[in-house]
Design a protein around this nucleic acid. Structure first.
Length: 461
RNA sequence: GGCUGAGUGGCAGAGUGGCUAUGCAGCGGCCUGCAAAGCCGUUUACAUCGGUUCGAUUCCGGUCUCAGCCUCCA
């Protein structure tokens, strides 16, 4: 039975879908004004795993991950570049898709864009007017009146008076209450804008997610996810908007993933301490990055460093090494204990770190019996491949993976094979010094040789 | 200040009221011409102070420390 930690109740709850056999899930995606960093990669990978696992246990999953393609930062960046904002966002949407694909993230069922949802957004704001939650301020902006929504703060555990106590300077005088937030922003000259009953403008942050989620999944759906920093105010405001407009409950389970950190500090654009996905992929195989993300629980902080990536690479090497030389087989083993343990781990709030431990136990058993019972080893290997596929790991050819780790090398495969042949000739005539010289030379160039059962194989390392 | 969450062995990171996590690194052994890979064995743990209990790293409370949110942020 799957249980999920729900940010709304701050505890694990047994997962029960609204419609039997079906899961509707919405995840806040990227605001596309720059390349994705590792923090974004974590969101994509974590919710990819969640969607994959929900499917694995038999749910029909409708997974929506939106793209916010209009906001202040996008406008600002487009202005800086002197380029049309649509061109800017198109570039970064493409880059995001490239990064996602590289990391083995399956495309969501649908990927709505804010700019293509303006009509829904306007309708939603109109409903908020009808229900008395919205007001049109003197400066032309439309605001949400937070004090009118009685449940405000239920997701983030905040009270209105506490929020007021911690209030910042720079209060917007057009708001009736400093905690009110903008639903529709009046356009300044030369800004992208759309017509609305409240004049030309654009959606505020928050409203687009209420509109897109409702549009794709209905008023009330199962899971809503995103980074922990979105819990407040973004998701809190979404609840206020959606429940205020529909009068129905909005979401059953809120899932928030933890941050990627650098030196014990949150990785973020404002702090400037981020690594983009593409930067990291210059140095590490995408699967290594994926493994790194899955090696800790999704709600825990994840400290980024080269050492940790190296560690992930070693671990992944061990997994692939066990698979090497064993044929891909569709047959499965009678022994279900690994499968059960794996599912127990994943059922417990998607405990990927624990699930990985099961994989390593499987690896040990494969290595133990592969020389005596190749058939049994093959069955276990297929089990390993299957369980790993749920995590989106180990789907490459092992030999190929082990040889391409760590980027380009100066030797071609032919050259390496040549040297291996020369070395084996030397070994055959017991010229150990020459054999070792060749092996050392290859080692220096990043190629490790392994003599096993009469043949010599090589890998990066 | 308010609200969350966390403190586990050399590093990373799960978990549990009493029984081996797992990976990397270290040490010893087996295997090997020697290695590598692999297998076996093995060394450092549960922030701190109290409480509950036959027994707590695990439950409860206090203390300390760290991170996050309260402002754009995945």
């Amino acid at each position: 039975m799957l249980s999920i930690y729900n940010s709304l109740s701050n505890q694990k709850e047994i997962f029960k879908p609204i419609h039997e056999g079906k899961v509707n899930m919405y995840v806040c995606g990227m605001t596309v004004y720059d390349y994705c960093h590792i923090g974004h990669a974590r969101v994509m990978v974590v919710f990819d795993i969640i969607a994959r696992y929900l499917r694995e246990i038999g749910y029909d999953v409708n997974y929506i991950r939106n793209i916010t393609d209009i906001d202040d930062k996008i406008i600002q960046r487009a202005n800086e570049n002197g380029e049309d904002f649509h061109r800017l966002t198109a570039r970064f949407i493409q880059a995001m898709h490239e990064d996602a694909t590289a990391l083995g993230v399956l495309p969501p069922s649908s990927e709505p864009k804010a700019t293509e949802s303006i009509e829904d957004i306007i309708n939603l704001i109109q409903k908020l007017f009808d229900n008395g939650y919205a007001y049109h301020a003197e400066n032309g902006d439309v605001y949400y009146s937070v004090s009118k929504f009685k449940d405000y703060g239920k997701l983030s555990g905040k009270k209105l008076e506490d929020l007021r106590a911690g209030e910042r300077v720079g209060v917007d005088s057009y708001k009736q209450d400093p905690l009110d937030f903008v639903l529709w922003k009046t356009a300044k000259p030369n800004e992208p804008s759309w017509e609305s009953p409240w004049g030309n403008g654009r959606p505020g942050w928050h409203i687009e997610c209420s509109a897109m989620s409702t549009c794709c999944l209905g008023n009330y759906f199962d899971i809503h996810g995103g980074g922990a920093d979105l819990q407040f105010p973004h998701h809190e405001n979404e609840i206020a908007q959606s429940e205020g407009a529909t009068g129905e409950p909005y979401v059953n389970y809120w899932i928030h993933n933890g941050f990627v950190r650098i030196n014990e500090e949150k990785m973020s654009k404002s702090l400037g301490n981020f690594f983009t996905v593409r930067e990291v992929l210059e140095k590490y195989e995408p699967e290594v990055v994926r493994y790194f993300i899955l090696s800790s629980h999704y709600r825990s902080p994840l400290n980024y460093s080269d050492q940790h990536l190296d560690n992930a690479q070693h671990a992944l090497t061990r997994l692939y090494t066990a698979l090497r030389g064993l044929p891909v087989s569709e047959e499965s083993d009678d022994d279900n204990s690994y499968y059960e343990r794996f599912h127990e781990a994943m059922d417990d709030d998607f405990n990927t770190a624990d699930a990985l431990a099961v994989l390593f136990d499987l690896v040990r058993d494969i290595n133990k019996i592969r020389d005596e019972d190749i058939k049994k080893a093959t069955l276990l290997a297929s089990e390993l491949r299957h369980l790993s596929s749920i995590l989106g790991l180990l789907q490459s050819d092992p030999e190929q993976f082990l040889q391409q780790l760590g980027g380009a090398i100066e030797l071609s495969a032919d050259e390496i094979d040549n040297m291996i042949e020369q070395r084996n000739a030397a070994r055959a005539s017991k010229h150990w010094a020459e054999a070792d010289r060749i092996r050392d030379e290859l080692k220096e160039k990043g190629v490790t040789l392994e003599d096993a059962s009469g043949t010599t194989t090589w890998r990066r390392g």
